[in-house]
Structures are given as C-alpha cells and as structure tokens.
Design a protein around this nucleic acid. Sequence first.
RNA 1: GGGCGGUUAGCUCAGUUGGUUAGAGCGUUGCGUUGACAUCGCAAAGGUCGGAGGUUCGAGCCCUCUACCGCCUACCA
Length: 897
Amino acid sequence: MEELASKYQFKDIEEKIYAFWEQQHLFSAQADENKKSFTIVIPPPNVTGILHMGHALNNTIQDILIRYKKMQGFNAVWMPGCDHAGIATQNVVERKIAAQGLKRQDLGREKFLEQVWDWKSSYGTTINQQLRRLGCACDWQRERFTMDTEYSNAVLEVFVHLYNKGLIYRGHYIINWCPRCQTALSDEEAPHKEVDGSLYFIKYPLKSSTKDYVVVATTRPETMLGDTAVAVNPKDERYSYLIGNFVTLPLMDREIKIVADDFVDMEFGTGAVKVTPAHDPNDYLIGKRHNLEFINILNPDGSLNKNAGAYAQMDRFKAREAVIDALRQKGLLLRVLQHKHAVGHCYRCGTMIEPYYSKQWFVKMRPLSEPAIKAVKDGEIKFYPKRWTKVYLNWMENIQDWCISRQIWWGHRLPVYYCRDCLKNLEDSNKAVIVSKTLPFKCPVCGSADIYQDNDVLDTWFSSWLWPFAVFGWPFNGDESAARIKQQDLKHFYPTSVLVTAQEIIFFWVARMVMAGFEFTKDIPFKDVYIHGTVRDDTGKKMSKSLGNSIDPLEVIADYGTDALRFSLISLTSMGQDVYLSKDKFEFGRNFANKIWNAARFLLMRLDESKDFSNAEEILKHKKLPLAEAWILSRFYSSLENIDKALSAYRFNEAANCLYEFFWHQFCDYYLELAKTHIHSEDIQFVLYFVLKNILLVLHPFIPFLTEQIWQKIAPNTGSIMLQKWPQVQAQAINRTLEANMGYVLEICTKVRNLRSESDIKPKQKIKVSIFVSNPYQSKLVKECTEYLKVLAKIEQLTLLNENAAPDQLCVSAAMPGTMLFMHVGDFDLKLEIKKNAEEIIKMNKYINRKSALLNNMQFVRNAPFEVVEKETQDCEKLKEKLNKLIQRQNELERAN
RNA sequence: GGGCGGUUAGCUCAGUUGGUUAGAGCGUUGCGUUGACAUCGCAAAGGUCGGAGGUUCGAGCCCUCUACCGCCUACCA
C-alpha cells in the first residue's frame, strides 16, 4: 500500500476535492416527482460580504443537513445566491469613488449604477468562492441574485399586487432618517442604542407675563427651533391654568400654544413637553391631534435648513451647542442633567438617526401578519429552539407598517410613475400616481405622455422576503417552456424544508418571508426555522469587523483545515446558544481530523489487499462474531441511532460529540487496540473495514473533505462518498447487555492500569490477575467477562488465573457489581495493597450508608416506582458483599504484614 | 419599563421527559513511545451544580424570590 503522511495534509487537497464534486455535478438536483425533496434556501449573503465566522457556522449547519439528507436519499437542493444589499453596497461604491474625489451626484444615476454593477461583477461574489472553500454543497447552477432580471420582475409584481390590493400606500410620516446615507430607514433598520446624553431644562417665557415661564426638558435642544407647541397633561394641576395660553419660543421669537395631551407623563422632567411635530414620533402624533404646524428644520444631510433662522447650514450637533450657548446667555437654560437614553442608529453606518417628517411609501402589515401568526401558532412552522416562537409572535402581533422607500440609487426602483400634467392640475397628488410594472405610454387619467418615474428604490428586504419562492422563478413570466420547468421546480422544492439563520434577522427577514409566502404562494415558505447562536469572541463580544475582534475563517481554514473549522464550530454550538470562540479552539477539530486520518492510515496498511471487502456487510450479518467484534458493531449502531436522533432534532453538537466519542474512544482507543492482537483474523478484517467504511459515511456531512479522500482509498471505483447511502440502523446488532458487560471489562482494565501506574509496574511487565466472584448468581456474567478479559489480557500483559484462586493476591474493586479482581501479590508492595484496600473500604462504606439510608426511608420505598426500589435494593446487596470481601481480605493482609 | 438567555471542575462548555458515585475538551500532575497517531497513549487530581426558600420519597434539572453577566425590545421628552 502507498505510504501516507503521519499528519493529515489538508492543504490543496480540499480545493481539489471541491472541484471534483463540482465537475461531477454532485450538488445539483432536478425536480423529480418520484423523490422526496429536501430544500434549503441560503440566507443570501450581501454581495459586499466576505465570509466571517457567523457565515461559517450558518453555512456549515446547512451543509451538514444537505449532505445528510442527500445521503438519506432525499432529492436535496441548496439554493445559493446573493442579496444586492442596497445601502451597504451603495456605500461601498461611494467610498470607492470618493477616493477619486467624486460623489455619486457627480456621476449621475446611470453612470453611478454602472459603477456598482462593475464592482459587483469583479468583487461582488467573493463570498461564493469562500463558501466553496467551506465545502458548501450549493447547487451553483441555480445561483440567484436579488437584482437579476427575473428576480426583479418578481419584486415589481409584488409591489403592483400589494398596491392594487390597497396594502401599499404613500404618505407623510415621521420616519427614521440617516443623515449620512441620506435615506429613510425602516424601524428595524434603526436599532436603539443607549447613549450618554444630557437632559436640558429650558425656560419658555409666557406670552402673557414678562416674568413667568414654563420649563420644558429635552435631550435634543436644537429641535426647539421647530417647536410649534408646548404640551402638558390635562390632569396636571400645576399647569391647568396655562392650557390655551401661549409661550414665546426663545431664539425664534415665535408664539406657540400650550396644549393638553394625555401622552405627557407628569412624572418625567417638568411635566411640560416641547412639541416638535416634524422631528419626533410622539410629537408628530400630538401635532396631528392638535392640528399643529409641522416645521421641518433639517436638511437631508443633518444640517439645519432655513427654517432654523440664524442656525441655518449649521450641523445638527454644532447647532445643539450653539442653541445651548444662546440660551445660557439669555438666562433661559435652567439646568442640565446627565441622562442615559436610547437613540436609533443606522444599522449600516452607525450614524445617529433623526426622526424626519417626509413623504414615503409604506406597506400595511396588519392584514399580512394574520396568516403568519396563525401558521406559527398552529405549529405549521416550528422554531428551534422553541423560545423564538414567542419573540416572533410578539413582534408580529404588534407589527407596524413598513417604510419601504429608500432615497438611494442601488436597488429596485419603485414601479411608480407620475403624470406631470395631473400633478399640476389635480389637487390630490396621489391621483397623479401610476403604478405599473412597465413605463406607461400615457396617463390613464388625462392621456398625457409627460410621465416620469419615482426616484426612490425599494428597501433591500422588500426583495429578500420573496427569496424562498422567487429563487424558483416565480411568477413565471416569459418563455413558456422555461416557465413550466420553473413551475415544476417550485412545486417539487417548495415549501422549503428548513431555514437556518441567526437571531438578528428574525424580524427583517424570517417574519416577512412567512407573510410573503402566504400572500403570494398561499403556503408556508419553510417548515422549520433553526436559529443558531451568535458568534462571539472569548470575552463575549459579538464578532464583527468593525470591532476588530473577528477571527477570519479563511485564516482558520489555512491553518487548521476546513474540516477542523467545521467540526470545531459544530461541537461548540449547542442548540441556539451563542458560540464563544478563540483561535485555539480549532485545535479540537484539527486533532480529530488527524485522528481519523491516522486510524484510516493504519487500517490501509493492515487490511489485506487480496480480500474483497465490497460485501463486508452481508458477510458479517450472517456470522456469529467474537465478543469484541459484536461489541464494536453494537456500539456503532447505537451511536448511529443517537446521531440520527440528534440530527433530526437539530442537535448538531450532540451528533458531533457522539461521532467523536465513538470514533476516538470506542473505535480507536479500545477496538483497534483489541483488534491488533488478532489483526489477521478474517472476522476482524471485515469488522475493521466495515466500521471504518460506515463511520466515514456518518462523518461525511461534518467532515466532508477528509472523508472523501479516505473514501477514495478504501472504496475506489464506487464514486464520490457523496453518492453513497447513509447507513441504516440494524436494531438486531444492538445488544445493550453486551455493551454493558464490555463496559465492566473496560473498567476493570482501567483498574489494572491504575494499579500499575501507582505501583510503578511497567506496561510490559506481566502480572497475574484473577476474577473472583462472591455471588453465585453472578458467575455466568463473570464467565462471560472472563472471555472479554482474555482479549484484554493480550494487550494489558495480564495472565488470567482461575476465578477462585484468590488468597494471597491483591484485590481491587471492579466496576461490575459483585465482582472482584485480584492481582498476584508478588507483583506488589504489601503496604500499598493495604492502603489501597483501606481506601476502597471507606468508599464502599460511604456508598452503602447512602443506599441504606435511602432504603430505610419508608417514604421512598412507598412512593418510588417499584423498579427503582428494586434496583436500589440489589445494588445495595452487591455493595455489601463486596465490602465483606474487602474486609476479609484486609484482615488477611494485616496478619501477613 | 417589558422580555429572553446565561451562571455546573483552573478555563471553555455538555447534561434529552427529576431517580440518587454530575460528564467532555483544554489546562494541570505523574507515567509512557523502534512504526496508525506527541495534532499520541495510560492514569490521576479537580465541581455538590450563583444565592435563598419551596414542591417531591428524591432536584443541576420543576416553582418562587434574589444577585451578577449578556442579549433583544420599548414613544418617557
């Protein structure tokens, strides 16, 4: 056989194997009515994205599922693709042209978009290459992009549909405005962050008096320039006499009314609130209720506009200082308190957002949410772990309308047109709106051809929420035969099986997909939602590029190998818990991969090449196997059973740990060592081959590259490991008694080694051992164990004596109840033996006392299930026998001493 | 303010319906290697499961309260 390196060399090999898979089209699937489908759509990474640990975890999980299901015979497909990521991508390209001193406005819309597309085609899909490095079995021939013509068509279709249904509307509202990106954002895109601010108390002089004033408290004093009222609670007796009166707005010398509104909290601040309807969501509502003037004081870039009088053109934060200075000089600033409060920040650039009154497009969400709530409540869609159900429902049940228009260029432009003539002639500008998938020739109202398209584009998530069905070509316009194939695809692969994603996009994406699924396909988009944890650094901070605490998966792949990265990640991820990473944790996976490599290497050297192993399974089925062989097969199948169970419940770490335990500690540590003593026996050869082959199959979804590589060596001419069948649990091969007994033997083995270690007896030095049993009922069991021990004796350099040759031999308590293990006394120091024995007696006494107390507790005996009581009683008896033996032995030893 | 998660060996974490000598990996200590693997083997030491109370014959696992850490959510200016 060929010489293999003693260390697993993963470099270069992984890429070659991936190329082989791709060339063989092993990742692709076609609709086939005779097969059961298993579908995953990838959470489309941003085109600007580069692979980070979150992706690595997310995609490893998906890949495991896809490979597992494929081997199980499902028609499995994993749909890959990228999201155009409107704001994020635009920002990247803006930064790029800024290096040449250009702004997007300098280029104009068309030229700028050309640049974005150029950027996209040269760098945009880097992440797809990186997913290949991760081993992802994506069906790349089905790759989609949210700005593809076909996909864009779906987006427009959806907009028109919802508009016609009355679920999309345009209106003036307070929205979240990012002054840096200069666009509106949805509520989800402006997460609140706690900031240290100040609460300023400002005097607003009463119009009616030169001395009297009302004090208001605010965290954003510059907004006072746009104040159009002061509000107090109608129940607040302190202010009731002022309601309906006027104050003079300082710095602006504007008279503004004092109104009464229930919203005002009497306890907070002074109980009087300045009202800025155009720059605060609550004030907006107060403004509406009291018919106040809406004064916008901000430019889109966050500087103040001409409505701010002397402060026009000043940046908002500069203006804040200037306003405070001016107030202080006028003696109108009463005091300033430190104040922590939560402020929205742009999720793309981190800039503090401004509530901003403007005309935007919205989706009415309430009607869409109803079936989405029902589906989750009825269990049609299940979350793993369950607790996310509540989070989802809570958001869904309190859903707000969704602001979908963005004032950027990169994205799906709204299919909204305006007739200039109608805008001029009609009072209601909404009547001049034409919503159409294509540019209308003429205005349906007045027939004018003077028509222009809305400049805004749609929120990125307005395309992402269609992903699970739009990737299959929905709504099937265009070429008829192509459409038919796509329809078949959708029918076969949709609803998808499981969505694997992170917690932070439940609202952005998961919830909205459910709504879109029902609205446009009348069906759920997926059955299960698996929410994995967030990847954090070892201090608990979320890993992110901006914090500089991220570990680059590609670097880990370079240093440890992809398989190591994947296996380590998966082992660390228990259901939905966050993953704390540091680089050294990847040694775990690397060591395991190396162990697999070396075990395989050993077997490749020792398996008889002249044998035909191809039907090992059949041969073994009909054989009465020696105990150790039967044991390892039993262990294999019971492990497989647990792995299947774990995988079907999305308990990936459990599956991984099962594999690790079986492969390393059962197969390598024990079975291989036992097998070495009879390595040329036919039975053992077949068993070794069989276990290696099958464990490779089970390892494959987790450790795809290494398993493929070994597979090609041990089963040449069978094609890729990806094409093999997942092993079936053979229930008849599982023998729990056998496993338990072998467990005792292995514990006895540990005891022997322990004694050797403590008495400094070299592993190669022969010692004599006998098994002694006091309880005749146990003798059959012991006899069996002696059989095991004979195998063990070979590797442990033991000489087994007759079972009752007890006297002058060292006694050790063994795992099996009622069983004693003796070693020949000549091998040991007598004092050590006495000490050892004494320790054992103490321990035994402790156990017995505990058990006796339990059994003397009548309430236990009365209330506990019969089996439990029975078991405890037996255990106690056995312990007592053992103790007696120990005491007897101790007496003998002491006499001899 | 509301909600959620965590608190188990020196470190990082498992622990599936409560059953009675609580597990793993890393680290530590001792021993070991002329051929599968030092990215290795063998053995050992080390937790009473954040704190308090409760339910139960029995609780790391259920309930209540509490402390600390983290996350999400919210219109207190």
